[in-house]
Design a protein around this nucleic acid. Sequence first.
DNA 1: AGCATTTCAGAATCCTTTTTCTGATTCCAG
DNA 2: CTGGAATCAGAAAAAGGATTCTGAAATGCT
Lengths: 154, 154
Amino acid sequence: MLFSTATGYALRALAALPEDGTFCLAKDLSSQLDLPGPYLAKILQGLVQASILESVRGPKGGFRLARPSHRITVGEVVAALEGPQALEGCVMGFPTCSGDHPCPLHDAWDAVKTQVTSSMTEATIRDLQLMDLRHQKEAEVSRGAGKKRPSPAG
Amino acid sequence: MLFSTATGYALRALAALPEDGTFCLAKDLSSQLDLPGPYLAKILQGLVQASILESVRGPKGGFRLARPSHRITVGEVVAALEGPQALEGCVMGFPTCSGDHPCPLHDAWDAVKTQVTSSMTEATIRDLQLMDLRHQKEAEVSRGAGKKRPSPAG
DNA sequence: AGCATTTCAGAATCCTTTTTCTGATTCCAG
DNA sequence: CTGGAATCAGAAAAAGGATTCTGAAATGCT
């Protein structure tokens, strides 16, 4: 993976949150996604501090998105957890690598940074939700349409 | 950086090795490159096991390239230290992400993998050596043009 | 107001990566 | 052939991130 595990957990949790203002429990999210509960809670706290989530304590409390899911970009989440300089520096760690002294992978890596940064800025949590919904839908279909054959001979 | 620090150290050490069959000491490499000596030695051992370096023990021993520098690709080194699956998996760590269920960054990441893999396969240690030589050359020039005084009082 | 439920915050534990240390092996000199 | 110096090689320690645990604060219900 390109990012830390915490960032991956955060994105999966955000994608699992409902779009309406319903509060969700960190515990439920962790069991639903098979993620370590207390660690996920700690990560969600970080997202609250980054104004990506809102939390309410007490009964009927929990976490919810601070904004509509299509207004939260993947890049925001990455920046909140990985820091804004996530993709900086030479690919290979050469301290002398720069625009003046480019390493052989410098240009390719530069294109990568542009591409990934652009994609992260465009992609939103809403997109992740749709992906997950699509996955669940297909799982249902395959469950109903017929059992998974070990040898798809047809 | 995209890879581990060990991989970065390995690449820097390989770029510092001479192209002829001379044996170099891990100690000299570490002091020349300002890298932790015993750790670098351990990394070099891994490169020996990957048949990228050759080592000889005892006096007049040391490490040297197992092949001409232009025959060792950056990809080989990365694969030897990071494993062959270094760039596999979803960018964001989504376990359900695949060609069938692509995440929003799937295509971009796929292009990245292709691009970086290709560059790593083409770039060789020889290219890294040339980059470093170029850097040293320019450092010399700048040293001649205006010397760096310890106390630039005037 | 008091109690139960729930989240937030910080400390402690575990694991991986990074770093360091000691021992095994090799070559040269006598 | 033996002793000593030099070097790699593998095991042991340290550091950083990931994970888990425990305590403190806040809210809603009675």
